[in-house]
Design a protein around this nucleic acid. Sequence first.
DNA 1: TCAATAGTGTCTGTTAGACATTATGGA
DNA 2: TCCATAATGTCTAACAGACACTATTGA
Lengths: 223, 223
Amino acid sequence: MRERPSRLALYTVDAVLVTAMGSELAILLGRNSSDRERWSLPWRIPQTGETLDAAAATTARDALGELPSWMEQIGAFGDGKRHPSEADVSVAYVGLIPHQTASPRDGHTWFPVANPPLLAPRQRAMVDGATKTLQSSLDQAPIAFRLLPATFTLSELQQMYELLLGKRLHKASFRRALQAAWLVEPMDEWRSEGRGRPAQLFRYLPKKKRRPHRGVRFDFLYP
Amino acid sequence: MRERPSRLALYTVDAVLVTAMGSELAILLGRNSSDRERWSLPWRIPQTGETLDAAAATTARDALGELPSWMEQIGAFGDGKRHPSEADVSVAYVGLIPHQTASPRDGHTWFPVANPPLLAPRQRAMVDGATKTLQSSLDQAPIAFRLLPATFTLSELQQMYELLLGKRLHKASFRRALQAAWLVEPMDEWRSEGRGRPAQLFRYLPKKKRRPHRGVRFDFLYP
DNA sequence: TCAATAGTGTCTGTTAGACATTATGGA
DNA sequence: TCCATAATGTCTAACAGACACTATTGA
């Protein structure tokens, strides 16, 4: 059984590890150390001198056995909600796991992000924050690419975007925008998936390009 | 002199308070408590039971005498860099101050954000994070409006956007997009600024509108 | 052959930016 | 009057979405 956290630890680092399973996103949960009936996000009390980013990476590796293909801090959570540790504050990270190749360590399982088991309120907030972070940085960082294997079809890429955005996208528009962005390179491979014409495989290989200049957006509804 | 932080405090809450002074952004700094020759961001050790948001608000009020018109958490900073307190980690917030009406408390002064005095490395990173946060949520939240007084001209609003974005904007396009967003209401007042035709005053009053549906963007250059 | 999916060409309505023009005050 | 700024109308190129069509496989 995991050792009880020291009373001196006033903050933890928690990881929301996300992968795509079929047509939905999944997060990795482990058995709660104090109550084996319940589940919790992987977390860790940083060693002295350990950076936050390093602690998050270690947390992910301890739970998964491998490092996420992409990690980013979500923020600090601590609005009086309960946490498996006795820490006042938890610094949350979101991490992406490319395929579902990784075999979680003992006691860890993937759960659908839309329908997780009961979590401590603060961890519940972190999961919500993770999906929000992924959506909002979807067009600023290669989130979808980091959730896919090294080679993929354009339909798979579009489905990943649709999964992350929670809405359908227009096929021709999607491919036009993708081509203009110089992000993928076609391979000399095709993949046949049941019936229908086989799809060409691509890999993520961003090339130099001019910064897209967009106009101002006023996308907020209310204060 | 400010009391020395307790050795038990493992994290602080720091506030990056931003206002617009003329043609540049400014941040509020106070004298460092241990070395009066140096400057630092306002910060605070949260009381037990105090939420992070509440601690950030209190930090701002203690330094300014008033609450910011908008606050948001930037994230947790702690990559081994030094901080005026002995905390391992600092949770940073950015706050907006509408005009420069507020008179900072003793020992506090506004500094240009582009050219601040020497800061502790971790606080320097928080200031950079603050401008990045403002830029990236500029089209998701009424940042520019919260930096302006209650009534303003459209030129002032555009100049605020240009200041935050660091680039010039097209006047006609800016006003078209603004009108389509139903965010401002014209007043029955005009203001004459030196020569030229007087400008009509507006106030921020967002109205119901349909969510704008945008296509996918691939705005990142490299991994 | 039909069904299903990949991939592309064309059209159209919307929009961002360029440009020009009018409006209205102060010097 | 001239000049500076506000405010707006028109044109054009770019682009997003709709639609239709071709291409290529398995059943």
